[in-house]
Design a protein around this nucleic acid. Structure first.
Lengths: 223, 223
DNA sequence: CCTGATTTGTAACATATGTTACATTTTTGT
DNA sequence: ACAAAAATGTAACATATGTTACAAATCAGG
């Protein structure tokens, strides 16, 4: 089995391939091989084991009420599957999980995994980090979705990037990705930026922003 | 100390007041009394201990770039503070935490808390449940924020509540709360519902909805 | 350095939602 | 059962954003 690949997984961060071998010799686990196209788990099914993709790629698919596929998220090795849904009140898969390529999964039953967490502090911290990171990412995203105007979102984004000292910022993502993150249309982002420039809040030149009126931007975040 | 109150805390769910006493005799902890108005933690400060409100009420306040207070969230006893921010990459308070009334906090240092988690399986599961529930709640919220139209959000909400079998649904929250959850204005929710009725998707009578065209609703969730 | 691909800026127009205001209905407390 | 409060249904109007399309600018690979 590919312990090297596993040692790159967030769950096993800071643990060498050899150590992983030792750890796994002490906890019941299963390996499940899958072929491209296999349905690995179904939406609504309860999540009763930890699942780590050892090799290959799987994807999550939401299925709507008419049976049509809506959204897709890829999880390549060595990612973990549905780790935020192993615990909590609604511990069921939120999506169908389907193999994109052939590959292998590491499965550890929930009870065995709990024992592992209690035995190995590094894995415990790694797991806590994983689900906490997810929460933190989602919180951040909601913060932006909650601003009602695009200018508000942009102002928040720019001020946050600039921090207290800096007076210029350089976007490291495209307008397209930014628009996706905000949940708005791309030309609307461009327009909002343009307007903010005309209104004297900033000077925009491609991805580089010079902040002119920090106070004013702060006001915009209050929609 | 008020172990009875603590036994109602999600972290100590399923553990009796006496057992809590025993557990706490074995792990270093501190009690911090606070008076109304005290600043308990500051936004940006790193979260290096577990904090449980034993008595009293605290609130979280976001502070904007001009120093003005924006949003508030109350955490009454026996809630935990910033539990989703103890771990993960950005383990800092996202808000200022301020005492609303006088009260007491239970503090356990992160390292000691980790030892406790490894020693006590019930607390471990409770904590995992707490942070997972948060993730799940946030995911759910984002799902709704991602629908571009209010009709889409409503359709999703109704179908989800109805499940596969039921053909009628009863809202258990007010339009106002629904509007907040969706991040839209209240009259817009009412209007969207009205339109969906005219368009023959459903029959709305106060909080009671009879689904007429399930297929059509499903189509709406595809915006 | 050149060329094709990606990203950005901008425009015209359509539309969903916000805002404000009020009447009506339902719920709550006594 | 009543009065007061809360929630709901609607309307008119303002506006932010979406949509589509295209040209200009920038980037990436050979």
């Amino acid at each position: 089995m590919d312990y090297i690949q596993l040692s790159r997984a967030p769950l096993f961060k800071g643990i060498s391939a050899e150590e992983i071998g030792i750890i796994l010799s002490d906890v019941p686990y299963r390996i499940r091989k899958f072929m491209a196209g296999t349905l690995i788990s179904q939406s609504g099914e309860s999540v009763n084991s930890l699942m780590v993709v050892i090799s290959g790629v799987v994807k999550g698919e939401m299925v709507d009420y008419a049976g049509r596929v809506i959204k897709i998220e890829d999880i390549p090795a060595p990612g973990a599957l549905a780790s935020a849904f192993m615990f909590g009140n609604r511990n069921r898969f939120p999506v169908n999980v389907i193999a994109v390529s052939e590959g292998e999964l590491l499965l550890i039953d929930k009870q065995d995994f709990l024992r592992l967490l209690m035995k190995n502090g590094v894995i415990l911290v790694n797991f806590l980090d994983m689900i906490s990171n997810r929460s933190q990412f989602l919180s951040e995203k909601i913060k932006f979705l909650n601003f009602k105007t695009i200018k508000g979102k942009l102002a928040q984004f720019i001020l946050q990037k600039a921090g207290k000292e800096l007076s210029s910022v350089s976007f490291d993502i495209t307008q397209n990705d930014l628009a996706d993150f905000f949940g708005v249309a791309r030309p609307s982002v461009a327009r909002a930026l343009g307007e903010m420039e005309h209104e004297g809040y900033l000077e925009a030149k491609g991805k580089n922003i010079r902040i002119i009126d920090k106070e004013g931007l702060a006001r915009l975040t209050r929609d």
